[in-house]
Design a binder for these strands. Sequence first.
DNA 1: AATGAATGAGTGTTCATTCAT
DNA 2: GATGAATGAACACTCATTCAT
Lengths: 206, 206, 206, 206
Amino acid sequence: MPKFAAIRKRAIQDLMKETLFEATVAVLNKRGMEGMTMDLVAAEAGVAKGSLYRYFHSKRDLLEFVFEKLIDPIFQHLEEMVAKEQPAIEKLRKHLQILLEHVAKHAQVHKLLFEDDVAHGLLQSSERRTFEAASRRLAAIFRQGISEGIFVPGDPLMLANMYLGLCKGVLQSQPDLGGEAQREKIHHLILGTLLNGIASEKGRFD
Amino acid sequence: MPKFAAIRKRAIQDLMKETLFEATVAVLNKRGMEGMTMDLVAAEAGVAKGSLYRYFHSKRDLLEFVFEKLIDPIFQHLEEMVAKEQPAIEKLRKHLQILLEHVAKHAQVHKLLFEDDVAHGLLQSSERRTFEAASRRLAAIFRQGISEGIFVPGDPLMLANMYLGLCKGVLQSQPDLGGEAQREKIHHLILGTLLNGIASEKGRFD
Amino acid sequence: MPKFAAIRKRAIQDLMKETLFEATVAVLNKRGMEGMTMDLVAAEAGVAKGSLYRYFHSKRDLLEFVFEKLIDPIFQHLEEMVAKEQPAIEKLRKHLQILLEHVAKHAQVHKLLFEDDVAHGLLQSSERRTFEAASRRLAAIFRQGISEGIFVPGDPLMLANMYLGLCKGVLQSQPDLGGEAQREKIHHLILGTLLNGIASEKGRFD
Amino acid sequence: MPKFAAIRKRAIQDLMKETLFEATVAVLNKRGMEGMTMDLVAAEAGVAKGSLYRYFHSKRDLLEFVFEKLIDPIFQHLEEMVAKEQPAIEKLRKHLQILLEHVAKHAQVHKLLFEDDVAHGLLQSSERRTFEAASRRLAAIFRQGISEGIFVPGDPLMLANMYLGLCKGVLQSQPDLGGEAQREKIHHLILGTLLNGIASEKGRFD
DNA sequence: AATGAATGAGTGTTCATTCAT
DNA sequence: GATGAATGAACACTCATTCAT
């Protein structure tokens, strides 16, 4: 195959996957997890049902792709965060900011991920893996914080889970995240609660 | 009908419901919410599918029964807690203790409720109502705590959700809750984290 | 078995059958043929479902009994009519009178037999047999009428069917049969049409 | 989509519907209304059960389609008849002729509609509506005949029902309608009876 | 003889997946 | 490569019939 054709083909494939991603998200928003059928996705995307199977081997495949793509930005950012040279507290602060922005942007979809957790069941392989990977990355930040002496000693993974649980708990109340100010408030609430609990005297949050 | 026969009949009915409850929980553990079919429950219980419908009018009925049976003890305790005359901090302490004991007792099942949250979606009517009711009861405790001056001011419902989120987060790590000592440790962890965060100077946790 | 016990037993059986007959008719009236289940009949009769099967081997058996019992009076009367020594026209007149009375009495049920003919399907063996037997008896009347010279020559069975069709057609309109006068009117309409047709002098058929 | 493909697709769809129509009729003939299940129709048509649902949204849909397809020709003709400018007697004559031809053509099927009237019950929405519409159209013919002075005065709708009842009665005997001559005979029988009745001069009704 | 719980073969319907065109 | 018709294994639920008590 000529190189050009290969590139174009790849581009078309990616475009198609993107289209299907958007269609899936649209269907999930409209009908929820239960009502997400391959027929509806195909109709929403304006392609034949059979075509879905050229790009994704199964419904599970498609959903894994979709959820990964939704989670990926945060995940990516997390990777970068961890790698950077800066205080753990800064990393955490930044992560939470990105997280809230992402949730604000994909509000309805996150209802699926954080609230209407039906999704989880279907996504044990991919989603949970991703989620656990995220936990591990976060744990690294907490580990750093502990060695910096700003967090009280403890299991970093547990701390990560507590932090995420705290976030979920807050999001469960479906707070308004529309504006920067609102997000700032929630940010302060979560971090304030978390830090004043786990911070040592030296790292005490003001 | 003679009184004795009526009693025996009732006992048998309850036994059957118990059997179906256990079969349902077993299926849920093995296959998750998605894989929980009436056929499987019947097979697991060793009865004909049709028999299920003598005891539960529908799948939803069965699930609501199962869920309520799982949640009810904690919920009941919560009701009593709220009604009692005692410091909010004591109520919270007690609630958490009961919660951890319950989770320890029904370990596999709580995977469904706290971890593999799939259940929630299918149980919007009963479960979410119950869950929200629990949140409201907890909120009352937090409201009391705020007026007692041991918690920093804030939305009590949000605090309740954060507390529950924290619990979920910790339980996500599947800590060992088998012994009293282990539970004591987790209890201390959760309450310590929560309180040192939201406690004012006056209510500071030691 | 002592004779007395046998008689009493038989009486009880008949009583039970009568009870079930009435329960079945009640259910048929309330729910129609589609909604007629053995459970409902048992509940209506106030007996256990299993008991039905002591008196009727199957649902079909029960229904055959019910329909036969409903049709029987007319059928019986027909037998007597045919046997009597009197002009065919008188026999027909009398039969129609009895028929209308019977329909008036069991109005709702006859909706099943004459209108909502779902019943027929389930009753091919018994009901149709009964119906055809009735046709044959009626045919005897028409045959007599022809030989008396008061009816035009023709296939007596066909005439019987036409007569019954006419009756059904009229009943389809659900005329008021409550009072003697109304029945008299319908009686006159059917017999008049059958005998003289609907043509005016001017429209007389060649 | 190219025009040709669209046409072919439509043709195939129609062919499939036709196939399912025939399969349904076959099942209805073999098993009656009660025994008409989607499984049997699929098996009879030689397709998978799921395929039925591509062409008909529900069992009801399928049955309505079948019924309409059976009734429509007569109904159509009736509409035209009523609209025409011609004596009522001519319209009636013509209608009866068409009716008999139709019955001759779809002999087995009319057993369902005219004899084994089971169908009616399940088709309350479409069928009964159609049937009553037919009655109303016929009534118009009778009303015309009355005002022309060729029919005796009376309720036109009742006359229509009597006429249809008469037809049903005759068809109940399953007369041979295979040849034009036979149909002519039946035609004469029905119309003669309807118009003149069955009484001889001697037996004329008062 | 009476009971009503248990049974299990159907019912209509859905939907992920396959495949001929 | 794209299509969408075809498939068939599930699914929740029903109900005539049986049977242990």
